[in-house]
């Protein structure tokens, strides 16, 4: 697909993908987790990964985000110092990416939040991890972000264990986006929620994606999620990508129904 080479903030960037994946594969013993996955993700683009349960979506996402070591392939990320294969990167470098340029929203908010730390502390952690040392500023940013994910300011000193599932998920999103990551991974972000809560979260996500010009990879088995959020779609089956293209095209003219 055609891409402009102007990024969201208007600065001109060399035309290149943000993430370039080649021949990625991961097995669990003899079982295939995912295989032969290749694609490019361009800045400002949202890629949806869909497929039935067990088709390899989570495996692929974990390999991309460096949570799981793939058996083969490349995951080249356009770092601030140019393109680098994150698979062969040292662990310190990869973990540093994980707390700066990358963000990961887990399906279960308990996996992505510190349940014993207040909402403000949860949002502030990433700021402090990259060196923020002014309590007032950290708190102001946390408040701002709680507002953006529609959590009342007076809940800032409450722990997530006192929040509903939908609030926890919104808090997890705030915690991830507060440092302005360049790439966001999401695994079934609306997965465990009631239908009405899902709709509100989707709405919120769509707003944030538009407003921040986020680049994101969203794994889901819910077609409503991708229809609303994804520019482009990848369909997985048995660990393989069986189809990819623009969301509308894939959804309206499916080859692998």
């Amino acid at each position: 697909m055609e891409m402009t080479n102007v990024s969201v903030d208007g600065r001109t960037k060399p035309a290149g993908p943000l993430l370039s994946v080649r021949d990625l594969g991961k097995r669990y013993g003899t079982r295939i987790g995912c295989a032969n996955v290749s694609f490019d993700l361009w800045p400002g683009e949202v890629l949806g990964i869909v497929g039935e349960s067990g088709s390899g979506k989570s495996t692929l996402l974990s390999c991309l985000a460096g949570h799981l070591e793939p058996d083969r392939g490349q995951v080249v990320f356009d770092t601030r110092n140019g393109p680098r294969d994150t698979i062969t990167m040292s662990e310190p470098e990869r973990r540093k990416l994980g707390r700066t340029d990358w963000a990961f929203v887990h399906q279960n908010p308990r996996d992505g939040l510190r349940m014993g730390v207040t909402a403000g502390g949860n949002v502030g952690e990433r700021l402090m991890a990259v060196g923020a040392r002014h309590y007032g500023d950290i708190r102001a940013q946390a408040l701002d972000w709680l507002g953006r994910v529609e959590i009342a300011a007076e809940r800032i000193d409450d722990r997530p264990s006192a929040f509903s599932g939908g609030m926890q998920q919104r808090l997890q999103i705030a915690r991830n986006l507060v440092t302005g990551p360049r790439l966001v991974f999401m695994d079934e972000p609306t997965g465990g929620l009631d239908v009405s809560v899902q709709a509100r979260l989707l709405d919120l996500l769509r707003g944030l994606v538009r407003e921040m010009g986020l680049s994101a990879i969203i794994v889901t088995h819910d077609l409503a999620v991708v229809r609303l959020l994804a520019d482009r779609l990848m369909v997985m089956k048995g660990g393989h990508v069986v189809e990819q293209g623009l969301t509308d095209q894939v959804l309206d003219d499916p080859q692998h129904a």
Binding site: E91, P92, R95, K96, R99, R114, V117, T118, G120, G121, G124, E125, R126, M128, A129, V130, R133, Y135, I138, R139, I156, D157
Partner: peptide, 19 residues
């Protein structure tokens, strides 16, 4: 320690001040 990931340490201090 080896990766100098010390954000958590300040989270503890943040929580103190918040409370």
């Amino acid at each position: 320690h080896s990766l100098e990931e010390y954000g958590l340490m300040h989270v503890k201090l943040y929580e103190d001040i918040a409370r």
